[in-house]
Amino acid sequence: MRSITARSISLFSLIALVAPALAAQEVEAKPSLLSPNTGVMAWTLVIFVVLFLLLSKFAFGPIIAAVAAREKALEAAIAMAKADRDAAALLLEEHRKAIEAARGEAQRFIAEGRATADSMKAEMVEETRKQQQEMLERARRDIEAEKMKAIDELRREAIDLALAGASKVIEKNLDDAQNRKLVESYLATIGAK
């Protein structure tokens, strides 16, 4: 067994070196597991080379090309997604800023509105007070005027009354001796003139 193995191994290595040289001898040798058959070797070579050519052209080429294309497409998709995400982030930042700005604006508007309202309220209160004052003043003036008028009226009435009383008294005192004397003396003065 060992001698067969050794012989086959040496044969094989020789064949590996100068494959076809020993072919004739090989075919005639007693078939053994370890003695290569040149016909099968030739078949193997032909089948393998043809298979290699066909597979690399019709199978591996297209498969690897398709995978490369898919990888490229995926990379492109990822790059696009990344770009989109960046753009979205930028947009988001912008929006956030805009919202911040809007909020500040609103705050300012509210503050302004409040200030305006306050000043308006103060103004209106002032106005109201002034009007009130004016009205009071006018009322007071009216009252004064009315009072004066009333006093005048009263005075006139009093004079009339006094005059009426006085005329009554005078009427009554006219036939009095004293009055006569008075008239006479008056007349006397006229006469003396």
């Binding site: 086959s8 094989f12 064949i15 590996a16 597991l33 370890l34 003695s35 290569p36 058959n37 040149t38 099968v40 070797m41 193997t44 070579l45 393998f48």
Partner: peptide, 8 residues
């Protein structure tokens, strides 16, 4: 078969 493996 050693012929096949040898050829490969």
């Amino acid at each position: 078969n050693i012929a096949v493996t040898a050829t490969l």
